[in-house]
Design a protein around this nucleic acid. Structure first.
Lengths: 218, 218
DNA sequence: TAGATTGTTAATCGATTAACAATC
DNA sequence: TAGATTGTTAATCGATTAACAATC
């Protein structure tokens, strides 16, 4: 359940790449940046960039482009990346550790404040300044921390059980890196981050490409 | 450049989740599985599952569903997951290590045979049985290994330089975990795995959800 | 001014969904 | 047989792209 349809989903997915370029533009001291320039940078069509940016409410100037600083503000507030959001990582394995320490998240307003792991020997240790707790402690720690976002990187076979505990602890949004289709109530948001999907795309692209370069019809 | 349009991209992205369920069905000893059942499992519409599966060429039996074993074969060969594909991980930081050791890849026919890192002190060590080499060595090692797929997890600022070296070494497909838009020739395939996009979606879903639960119009 | 760029409106394209005959 | 399920054909929906007037 809890199917949450985002309108303009493809546009939303492209906004972060625009934001990156516009921030570079700001660092470079530019006052305006054109949709054409952003499009060239990303191999997109200018019309698509303009259409995407319009959902943020920004308005540009003909001939000049979009004002850089207000554009950044517009994208950030559309994504709610101008507010600090705290999250916990659940499953401090390799992927969980990687995400815990990922510096790029800060630029999206995302701060990881704790990690949990089933391996009790990890409890009390730290991953890049982030305290690691026992998995069992999440019921008390999460309400204490007042966090409502969880990044889920536990093994598949425990994913649903851990999710149930997260829900009891007050988690309202789950960034799900497992391949399990989580069951959550309607007021909880889930974003599935599915590496298999990406690899499926790479695999098919490779097949198509090799076929086309052998002169075969696609 | 090298824009490679995959037809049915959304369908391709859903195939891995179908494959997972169908494999479970095989393990359970089922002979047939219906599109309806797969759909229920994934909160999708049955018609969408049937349409997606049709691209693999599988054909089902009215009333019974799809034959499990042939369905697995059909999906796997459509994705080319029935052949062993060897890859290297470039950038053996946290994310690179996580991906190097990820057991799920084997089920997609993907085998990581080496890792490279700029940190020379890591050279000679192993990450889960996978040898780690110096970044400089990729020019010789990759042709030796005969690998044509690379998983790129280096810091953004070196991504393009490293990519250029990978191309020289004969890499033809890059699974790109950096946020850099890589420049590659037309015969090279790139699949961008962009965590920011996923987090943008989570952020917007959260905003929409909280608005709708406060009784606001969306 | 001339020309590049925006933003709107309309057209096209592709994906999802609906309807339904065929069938095991 | 009756009924659930497939696969096809058509309709709907949404995203992308095209065309172009407005404008700085």
């Amino acid at each position: 359940m809890a199917k949450c349809k985002v309108s303009y989903a493809p546009s939303v997915r492209r906004l972060p790449s625009y934001l990156l370029i516009v921030r570079q533009s700001l660092a470079h001291g530019d006052e305006y940046i054109s949709g054409t320039l952003i499009a060239n940078e990303l191999n997109l069509e200018p019309i698509q960039v303009r259409k995407d940016l319009s959902i943020t409410g920004i308005t540009g100037k003909p001939k000049r482009g979009y004002p850089v600083a207000p554009l950044i503000t517009a994208i950030e507030s559309y994504l709610n990346w101008n507010n600090r959001v705290e999250a916990v990582v659940v499953g401090a394995g390799n992927l969980g550790s990687a995400l815990s320490g990922f510096p790029g998240f800060r630029q999206h307003g995302l701060y990881i404040v704790a990690a949990f792991d089933a391996d009790k020997s990890k409890a009390g240790s730290k991953i890049r300044d982030i305290p690691v707790y026992q998995l069992d402690d999440l019921s008390t720690r999460i309400p204490e921390l007042g966090v409502s976002v969880a990044i889920l990187t536990v093994p598949s076979d425990t994913a649903q059980d851990v999710t149930t505990k997260l829900l009891e602890a007050g988690i309202k949004a789950i960034w799900n890196f497992t391949n399990v289709k989580l069951k959550v109530p309607d007021d909880v948001v889930v974003q599935n981050e599915d590496l298999s999907s990406g690899y499926a795309m790479l695999s098919v692209k490779r097949r198509i490409k090799s076929a086309s370069f052998m002169g075969d019809a696609i």
